[in-house]
Simulated assay, not measured.
Amino acid sequence: MKAAVLESYNHFVWKDVETPKVKPDEVLVRIQFASICGTDMHIFPGDFHPRSPVPFIPGHEMGGVVAEVGNGVSGFNPGDKVAVDPIIWCGECPACKRKHYPACTSLKLLGVDMNGGFAEYISVPPHMLFKTAPHIPDQHVALVEIYGIGFHANNRAQTAEGDIIAIWGAGRVGQVILQAARTKTTGTIFMVDPLENRLQIAVGNYDNVIPVNPKKENPVEVIRKHTGGKGVDIAFEAVGHAEEIEGVNTPVRSCIQSLRGGGKVCVLGLGDEPAPIVFKELIWKEGQIITSRVSDGEFTEVIDHLNAGNLKPDALISKVMPGSETQQAFELLQKEKGKYLKVLLDFS
């Protein structure tokens, strides 16, 4: 089979590799599309070394069709359209024993810790596969994993009907938080991002979304104005590596300042820099800070909404490129990262 192999950091090679042999307890999936994630963009230059050693095949957001079913596997047939959940829990650590799987201390992912989906085929155990309806476009199936992150964040924050929400960061993760939130609340959603094109994606696809560019106006002041000084029920931080903007506090502190009394901040951003906050601002409101990592069974929830037409995956897809051009795709995202949301790789 053909695969995009990261032979050395910053260097993909499109080459022939051995097609996985299907074990009795596995399913061979013919990958149709895989999506480039922010994590992949860090793996590419070596930021994840030694966790992601080269050479290997990245790719943890993927979808395809069942090509072959191992002996003893039931519930899947060749031709079934499936999304692949890349997460592998250890099952033995204290978090896993409490069934809090995203907090697994030995969590691993296909395409991060081992070969993944930037290839024509992958063989995985059946519990990592989730069927989608036949009418769902193959490109959309590759987005189930990132949608799972958005739904998991909303489930961690317990988003409910009527909740007013603010989302710092209108990139890939911020957009799926928005789309997931819209299946749970019709309340106002504030989107905060210095990139106008990302804000326009949000307001162009959903009603009752207020865009806020922190380079033009203070997000906390805008939120207080529109909520009569009360603030939001939930504020999500999906920025990660934040750009310093004069006169505007860090995203996490701004999230706290935007809360109503008793509100929640849900932090997803994986920035390496310290994020200064003033805890008395949180204590006065008796607010909560929670975190969210990967997903935890939300694939089924995502697929139900995709099947019902409740999500807008085309709003996330900026460009589709053949798998043979994986190197060019990564270089494009490095040079113009603010221009694109999801770039899909076509392995069909």
Results as ranks from 00 to 15, higher is better:
118 F>Y: 15
110 L>S: 10
331 E>R: 12
77 N>T: 14
281 E>T: 05
234 I>F: 08
229 G>H: 01
3 A>V: 02
112 V>P: 10
138 D>C: 03
200 Q>A: 15
289 I>A: 11
87 I>T: 14
190 F>R: 00
241 H>A: 07
250 T>D: 12
178 L>Y: 06
174 G>A: 01
266 C>K: 08
10 N>P: 08
316 L>Y: 09
304 D>T: 13
33 F>L: 02
29 V>Y: 06
91 G>M: 04
245 I>A: 08
207 D>I: 05
198 R>V: 07
93 C>K: 07
104 C>P: 07
244 E>Q: 09
167 I>L: 04
326 T>E: 02
37 C>K: 06
19 T>C: 10
16 D>A: 12
182 R>P: 10
194 P>E: 05
148 G>W: 09
292 S>E: 11
314 D>F: 12
12 F>K: 03
119 A>M: 07
7 E>N: 15
124 V>T: 00
12 F>V: 05
326 T>I: 04
201 I>S: 01
130 F>M: 09
69 V>C: 01
156 R>W: 08
14 W>E: 00
120 E>N: 13
22 V>M: 08
254 S>W: 01
31 I>H: 13
195 L>G: 01
26 E>I: 04
232 V>Y: 02
255 C>K: 02
201 I>L: 13
239 V>W: 05
110 L>K: 13
204 G>Y: 15
93 C>M: 09
279 F>W: 07
270 L>T: 13
340 Y>A: 03
170 A>H: 02
134 P>T: 00
281 E>P: 07
6 L>V: 13
237 E>S: 04
296 D>M: 09
217 E>G: 02
343 V>E: 12
198 R>L: 05
193 D>Y: 04
249 N>P: 02
141 V>S: 03
259 L>V: 03
33 F>C: 10
2 K>W: 02
172 R>A: 14
37 C>S: 15
26 E>N: 10
166 A>W: 00
41 M>L: 15
159 T>P: 03
255 C>H: 08
93 C>D: 06
109 L>A: 13
293 R>S: 11
276 P>F: 05
306 L>G: 13
68 E>R: 09
336 E>W: 12
228 G>I: 03
276 P>L: 10
206 Y>K: 03
299 F>A: 13
314 D>A: 11
235 A>Y: 02
237 E>M: 01
241 H>S: 12
98 R>N: 14
108 K>F: 00
18 E>W: 04
298 E>V: 09
36 I>C: 14
64 G>M: 13
146 I>R: 09
220 V>S: 00
142 A>D: 11
18 E>G: 01
85 D>I: 03
166 A>V: 03
127 H>G: 04
254 S>K: 01
225 K>I: 01
285 K>R: 14
127 H>S: 00
158 Q>G: 06
12 F>E: 06
22 V>T: 15
315 A>D: 05
209 V>D: 11
300 T>H: 14
274 P>W: 04
313 P>D: 11
241 H>R: 15
272 D>V: 07
